[in-house]
């Protein structure tokens, strides 16, 4: 082969460029990474930039020092209590959803007729969203709704139970959208666990409770923590149903309402940003705690997927 072959001449020409490009490629950086560029630009422009813009805005209140909006939020009991109100709603709701979903998903982890129907129907409330659920709750659980009529016709109660425009209305709304979510998520984690593990345990004489407690549950725990986190995120950001089926001035005045009011009723963007930052921080703190608990308590247990 002669010296003037295309390859022979091509390489020395680009030796300089080829050199560093080659070195980068060896470290895993090459042209293919450009495919990531649009997404990175997107996340920087539409998520990180607004986020940090909001963060710095929250330290530039309309009046007072850099922390005065945070100070304002925490010194005003009406505002400060929204954190507690939100957690009082979202933590029990998320916990209930996960705990109720585990036995159901465990029961239904195998294959059976109509499984797809069950899962399909469960998806409905998730896709309907909170606004429609709220409308349905107002109709169904209202004082003249079917639910109260049944209770009264059965003579269980004498006058309608108040289930809307209070804590319970929002709680039900969170369960209706959150429970199917938790169930489907746990179901998919459960189906990621090799069923032969349980069969192996059964051959060693483990009863169903022991099998669940000693084999499935430890393997499922990482999945449960993730499910709890995601369900909690859903519940924590409760907004339309807190207004529509809750008592937005009192028992269900959640933190998103406070943030919304600051931004869209008082037009105080620095204050709204400050509340939003507090909201994000509280949520991330809860998630961090759960994940920390997961890693410390269940180190080494790998199972399910993710």
């Amino acid at each position: 082969m002669s010296v003037s072959t295309p390859v022979g001449s091509a390489v020395p020409e680009h030796e300089g460029a080829g050199g560093w490009r080659h070195r980068l490629a060896e470290r895993g950086i090459d042209r293919q990474l450009w495919l990531l560029a649009p997404a990175v630009v997107f996340v920087v422009l539409l998520f990180l930039y607004p986020f940090f813009y909001g963060l710095q805005l929250s330290f530039q209140p309309n009046e007072g020092g850099p922390f005065s909006d945070y100070d304002r939020f925490f010194s005003d009991a009406y505002q400060r209590d929204t954190i507690g109100t939100t957690l009082k709603l979202s933590l029990p709701a998320a916990l209930f959803n996960v705990l109720a979903a585990v036995p159901l998903a465990y029961r239904m982890r195998g294959r059976f007729r109509g499984k797809r129907l069950v899962t399909t129907v469960l998806v409905v409330p998730i896709t309907l969203g909170t606004v429609l659920t709220a409308e349905g709750l107002l109709n169904y659980l209202g004082p003249a709704g079917w639910f109260n009529r049944i209770l009264m016709d059965l003579h269980l109660v004498h006058e309608p139970v108040t289930l809307i425009h209070n804590y319970w209305g929002v709680f039900f709304s969170l369960v209706i959208t959150g429970f199917p979510f938790a169930f489907l998520l746990i179901l998919s984690y459960l189906s990621g666990i090799d069923p032969s593990l349980e069969r192996a345990a059964a051959t060693m004489g483990a009863g169903w409770w022991q099998r669940f407690r000693r084999i499935t549950l430890p393997l499922l725990t990482p999945g449960l923590a993730t499910t709890f986190c995601l369900t909690f995120v859903l519940a924590f950001s409760v907004f339309p149903s807190a207004i529509l089926v809750g008592n937005p001035a009192g028992s269900t005045r959640v933190i998103s309402i406070a943030a919304y009011q600051a931004a869209y009723e008082q037009y105080d963007y620095p204050y709204a940003s400050a509340i939003a930052m507090v909201m994000g921080l509280v949520e991330l703190a809860v998630i961090a705690l759960v994940l920390l608990w997961r890693t410390t308590l269940f180190k080494g247990s790998t199972g399910g997927k993710g």
Binding site: V7, A10, V11, H14, E26
Partner: peptide
């Protein structure tokens, strides 16, 4: 896979930086 060390030569021509598809 790019080389970390060394080189590949074909009939005296450096070959290891030719892209795989070429």
């Amino acid at each position: 896979v790019p080389l970390t060390w060394g080189s590949i030569w074909m009939d005296g021509e450096r070959f290891d930086q030719v892209p795989c598809e070429k």
